[in-house]
C-alpha cells in the first residue's frame, strides 16, 4: 500500500528544519555573534560618532534613520549566508545525497533550506534590533508591512543563497556573490543615506538597484518614511522572491549541479 506522501513530506520537512536550526545554534559563534558585533560597530561609528555631525534625515536622527537599513542588511546577508553555506557543504561532503535519495519532494527540500535561512535571518535581525535599541528609539509605523517585508526578503535571499550553492563548485564560488554583489548593492541601496541626497543622475542610477526598494520598504514599515512608493517597493520584493523561487525549484527538479 502506498505510504502517505504528505505525511512523509511533513515529517521530512520538520527533520530538515530541525537539522538546519541545530546547525545555526551549534555554530552560533559563527552564525549569530559576528553579525551582531559588526552591526554594533556600525551603530557606534556611523550612528553615534559620525551620525551626530550629520543631523536629521526626514526629521529622524541619523542613528534612527540608518537602523532599519542595518537590520535589513543583517537579514539579507544572514539568510543568504545560511543557505549558501549549508547547501554547499552538503554538496561538498555529499551528505546532500541523504535528501536526494529520500522520497521527500523537491519543494519540501527547498522549503526546509529556505526556512533555515529565514530563521537565521530573523534570529540575527532580532539581536541587531536589540543592539539598536541601546542606541536609539525605534518605532514600528506599519507592523504588517514590516513583518511582510522581513519575511519576504529573508525568503528571497535564502532562495538566492540556494541558487548560488547549486552553481558553486568551490568556496570561492560561494563568496563571490556576497562580496561583489550583495555588499556593494546593499551599501548603495540607501542603508546610510536617502537618495534625495544624491545628485540627479546618481538618483536615477540608484533606482536601478533592487536593494533600494527592499531597504526603503522596510524603512517605510518601521519609520513611515521612504524614497520610493511602498507599492513599487513591494512589487519589486514580490517579483524577485517569486522569480528566485521558480529558478530554485527548477534547479532542484532538474538536478542541476546536484544530480549527474
Amino acid at each position: 500500500m502506498d505510504k502517505n506522501i504528505f505525511q512523509i513530506n511533513l515529517i521530512g520537512y520538520k527533520s530538515l528544519l530541525r537539522k538546519e536550526i541545530n546547525r545555526i545554534f551549534r555554530i552560533w559563534i559563527q552564525t549569530i555573534i559576528p553579525p551582531a558585533i559588526t552591526m554594533t560597530l556600525y551603530f557606534v561609528i556611523f550612528g553615534s560618532l559620525i551620525g551626530s555631525r550629520i543631523g536629521a534625515i526626514d526629521e529622524y536622527p541619523y542613528m534612527t534613520f540608518i537602523a532599519p537599513g542595518l537590520i535589513m542588511m543583517s537579514i539579507i546577508t544572514n539568510s543568504f549566508g545560511n543557505v549558501v553555506s549549508s547547501f554547499f557543504s552538503g554538496k561538498l561532503q555529499r551528505h546532500l545525497e541523504e535528501l536526494l535519495v529520500s522520497p521527500m519532494a523537491n519543494i519540501t527540500i527547498l522549503l526546509g533550506y529556505v526556512s533555515g535561512g529565514v530563521i537565521r535571518g530573523l534570529s540575527v535581525a532580532s539581536l541587531v534590533t536589540i543592539v539598536a535599541l541601546f542606541f536609539t528609539n525605534l518605532t514600528v509605523a506599519h507592523p504588517l508591512i514590516t513583518g511582510l517585508v522581513i519575511i519576504l526578503i529573508s525568503i528571497c535571499f535564502s532562495l538566492a543563497g540556494l541558487i548560488n550553492a547549486v552553481y558553486a563548485n568551490n568556496f570561492d564560488d560561494i563568496s563571490i556573490i556576497p562580496t561583489f554583489v550583495l555588499t556593494p548593492l546593499t551599501y548603495l541601496g540607501g542603508v546610510f543615506f536617502s537618495i534625495e541626497m544624491l545628485p540627479g543622475i546618481w538618483q536615477t542610477i540608484a533606482r536601478l538597484n533592487p536593494m533600494l526598494y527592499m531597504i526603503n520598504s522596510f524603512r517605510y514599515g518601521m519609520l513611515g518614511i521612504s524614497d520610493i512608493s511602498i507599492t513599487t517597493g513591494m512589487t519589486v520584493i514580490v517579483t524577485f522572491t517569486v522569480t528566485l523561487f521558480i529558478i530554485a525549484y527548477y534547479l532542484l527538479k532538474t538536478g542541476k549541479g546536484i544530480r549527474d
Binding site: K3, N4, Q7, I8, N9, L10, I11, G12, K14, S15, L16, R18, K19, N22, R23, R26, Q93, H95, E98, L99, S102, P103, M104
Partner: peptide
C-alpha cells in the same frame, strides 16, 4: 562530518516519514 552519529540516523529516518 559535524553531525552526531545518532542525529544522522534520526534525521535520515525523518526524511522517509
Amino acid at each position: 562530518a559535524f553531525e552526531k552519529a545518532k542525529d544522522i540516523l534520526v534525521n535520515q529516518a525523518g526524511y522517509y516519514g
